[in-house]
Computed example of a mutant assay.
Amino acid sequence: MLGAVIMVGAAATACSDGGAVPGVHNTSQSILDKAPVATDADLEQSPTAQAIKKRGELLIGGSLDTPLMSQANPNTGETEGFDATLGKLLAKYIIGQPNKKIVNSIPQIRETLIQNATVDVVLQNYSITLPRAEKVSFAGPYFISNQAIATLTEKPDIRGADELNGKTVFAATNSTGAQKVKELAPKANLVTFGTDQECVAALEQGRGDAWVKDLTVVAGQLRLDKKIKLNTGSFGNDPYGIGIGRGDESFKRFINGWLKKIQAAGLWQQAYKETLGTVIHGDVPAPPEPGSVPGS
């Protein structure tokens, strides 16, 4: 799946938890009630985790406007979605309570936020790549996304990348989707725009046949827009990681241990069902194994 990029405004504005977002499922209390809490022995393995617990709040570089992943309630500021739920679970694991603060970030500053210790982690559909792994470390992956194909609802289904050949396809400039279309559908007429919103507008205006983007972003768009549909075809793999300070191996092991615990307890799967699973049909995907991709 795609390493989705949603521009969320300028750098560091922060937002604490509150209530529900219209059209977005709240984090169910049952998830938080069942969430594990690190033991003293667990915390002793990571000085970073100990410092966060002492502070009493987990600082997360993330998004405030990505539907189904991390979207802020305009009335209360609480964030809801898959990433937001994982953030609450991680905060509870470290602190004992889901106390977190989202530092609103954009892709261009994520590494800087980590390097300057403005945040403890970045949890923002943050794709693990080798160039990024030279600047920060990654726990996870916690999710494997892929490139999804969206069309107008009344159009025939497109069942794979090869069926994009001969069609006009929209993708964001310099996105993973654009790169994959070039590789896997070289005969497609690829048209790129600076933002995904422009891609969606062009699709709705009938100026092309399909929009290719990260599955999580397309799913979020479907939450808001009934004019487009998610097609059955998808392609490519894009692992999402939790960005942390470069070389903080003890914190990486700590987070990876937490990921394994919430996966084994079924909490990862429940979080998926209540967010992305409300739009993406089919079985819940198998959680990825932490440390299983290059750069993690």
Score class of each variant (00 low, 15 high):
Leu2Arg: 13
Gly3Glu: 03
Ala4Tyr: 10
Val8Glu: 15
Gly9Lys: 14
Ala12Asp: 15
Thr13Lys: 12
Cys15Arg: 00
Asp17Thr: 01
Asp17Arg: 01
Val21Ser: 04
Val24Arg: 05
His25Cys: 07
Ser30Tyr: 07
Ile31Lys: 03
Ala35Leu: 04
Val37Ile: 11
Asp40Arg: 07
Ala41Ile: 06
Ala41Phe: 03
Asp42Tyr: 12
Gln45Met: 09
Ser46His: 05
Thr48Asn: 08
Ile52Met: 11
Lys54Pro: 01
Lys54Ser: 05
Glu57Arg: 10
Leu58Met: 08
Ile60Ser: 06
Asp65Arg: 10
Pro67Lys: 11
Ala72Leu: 12
Glu78Tyr: 07
Phe82Met: 04
Asp83Gln: 06
Leu86Gly: 10
Gly87Asp: 12
Leu90Ile: 06
Ala91Val: 14
Ile94Glu: 02
Gly96Val: 02
Lys101Glu: 00
Ile102Leu: 03
Pro107Trp: 15
Glu111Ile: 14
Thr112Ala: 11
Gln115Met: 06
Ala117His: 06
Asp120Trp: 04
Val121Glu: 03
Gln124Asn: 14
Gln124Glu: 11
Tyr126Gly: 00
Ser127Gln: 14
Ile128Glu: 04
Ile128His: 05
Lys135Val: 00
Tyr142Leu: 15
Ile144Trp: 12
Ala148Phe: 05
Ile149Tyr: 00
Lys155Trp: 08
Lys155Thr: 02
Arg159Ala: 13
Arg159Val: 14
Arg159Trp: 11
Ala161Ser: 13
Asp162Pro: 04
Asp162Cys: 01
Leu164Gly: 02
Lys167Tyr: 02
Thr168Gln: 10
Ala171Ile: 12
Gln179Tyr: 11
Lys180Val: 03
Leu184Gln: 14
Leu184Thr: 13
Pro186Tyr: 01
Lys187Gln: 13
Cys199Arg: 09
Val200Arg: 04
Ala201Ile: 06
Ala202Pro: 04
Leu203Asp: 13
Glu204Thr: 09
Thr216Val: 15
Val218Ser: 06
Gly220Tyr: 10
Gln221Trp: 07
Gln221Thr: 15
Arg223Cys: 08
Lys227Phe: 06
Lys227Glu: 09
Ser234Ala: 14
Gly236Lys: 07
Pro239Glu: 08
Gly243Lys: 05
Ile244Arg: 12
Arg246Val: 13
Gly247Glu: 11
Asp248Arg: 08
Phe254Asn: 01
Ile255Arg: 03
Lys260Glu: 08
Ile262Glu: 00
Ile262Gly: 03
Gln263Ile: 05
Gly266Tyr: 01
Gln269Lys: 06
Ala271Glu: 00
Glu274Arg: 11
Thr275Leu: 07
Thr275Glu: 12
His281Asp: 11
Gly282Ala: 10
Val284Met: 07
Gly291Met: 14
Gly291Thr: 12
Pro294Cys: 13
Gly295His: 08
